[in-house]
Nucleic acid binder design. Structure first.
Lengths: 219, 219
DNA sequence: TCTATCATGTAAAGGGTTACATGATTCC
DNA sequence: GGAATCATGTAACCCTTTACATGATAGA
């Protein structure tokens, strides 16, 4: 039940059509949400039936009419109370991390290939976000204004950026780790095999110590 | 269609019942996946119908029979090819970040309250993971073995930990930012109001410069 | 006594994705 | 000539969540 809040939140800032909302989802809001037009249009109808939004038709030349939605007082109450409500406990689904978890089933070279590929995917996302950050900052400087709205957007944007940067860094580290431990795959590929611990001992000791020390690092 | 791969991946390591699989989802695998028993049981039946797994009943005293599943060669082919297949593009849903995005609708104090609460939620997750890391390392040291399986688990565990550490750090930073910019909310709460840029100028300049410099930091 | 754990499921409702349907304009 | 953009939607399917259903044992 969060799509309705994504829509109401947007409409609390500007009037918009379903099509406009989808563009916003694909642009800035892709940091934390996504949806399809075929889900947005029916949801807008439901919200109108519940009188949380109203709509008016704006005719255009050579294009279909725009159905422009506005939020009602009821809609503002709904979004405000949701924003102040206890957040859901995080339910993470990261299918790439799951692939990695099962990558002992494929060769070390294939593991490295997958990690490099995914690193590239994340880098693309990062590059897009960096452009958004640049534009956001330039617009703030140009207009010489600061508002709670811009502040919260900035914080969210930063979180999105950090997430990409850190995922990319983890890919790099993991590639290095697998590269250094290739012998674990090469010498014996049967699932029951175990290798002398010494081959990877120091490396893994460092890795685990670094992992356990993560919390105490300064940013 | 990833639940089937979560299940097949697990069964490629050990035989298990639906109930066992659920426990694994709630424990280690919660870093990247989750599911309900009411989804796992029907999925296991489907996998058996497709001959990717087989099952046998193991009677118990005073408890219901265990229906223990094993993976077939077909199942191993399926999981292996999925692990080596191009990863999905990441589709992120983070409803808390969405709440934050719309928090200009509530007071600065309420924003800080929400951020502190969520920080606590993430801290709890982190504490659990830290225990898992500790146990994983102790078991590796004790058994004196290293395998691709343990290596990939370690990498995933580290990613999970990093994610929590960094989300918590972002919460702290964002709390400090809102605290420093409280005046943006206090002086005028109407959505059309804009405040003199100077109030937050230097702070935001630093914030944006830090955000843009993120990629170049060394871990 | 009540709650948690073990262990299996079904049914209904809700949320999300893909495919289908239409049709003009603009850009390559 | 073909692809992309603007703009609206419906239908079918798939995936996920919540509620219902059973029943024994162990521990607080």
């Amino acid at each position: 039940m969060t799509l309705r809040h994504a829509i109401l939140g947007l409409l609390s800032k500007w009037d918009a059509t379903g099509y406009d909302i989808k563009k916003e989802f694909d642009d800035f809001m892709s940091i934390f949400w996504h949806s399809h037009l075929s889900q947005i249009y029916p949801e807008l109808n439901k919200l109108e039936a519940e009188e949380l939004v109203t709509s008016r038709l704006v005719p255009q030349e050579g294009k279909p009419d725009r159905k422009v939605y506005s939020i009602t007082n009821g809609g503002i109450d709904e979004i405000t109370s949701w924003v102040g409500a206890p957040p859901d406990i995080p339910k993470i689904k990261d299918s790439f991390l799951m692939q990695v978890f099962f990558m002992d089933n494929i060769s070390a070279d294939d593991v490295i290939f997958q990690l490099k590929y995914y690193q590239g995917v994340r880098q693309k996302r990062l590059d897009e976000m960096k452009q958004t950050v640049q534009e956001a900052w330039e617009s703030i400087v140009e207009r010489q204004i600061m508002t709670p709205r811009l502040l919260m957007s900035s914080a969210v944007l930063r979180r999105g950026l950090e997430q990409e940067v850190q995922y990319i860094r983890w890919c790099e580290e993991t590639i290095a780790l697998v590269e250094a431990c290739k012998s674990l795959w090469d010498t014996d590929t049967s699932p029951d095999s175990v290798l002398p611990f010494n081959d990877a001992k120091e490396l893994m000791e460092n890795y685990y110590n670094a992992t356990l020390a993560l919390e105490n690092d300064e940013a």
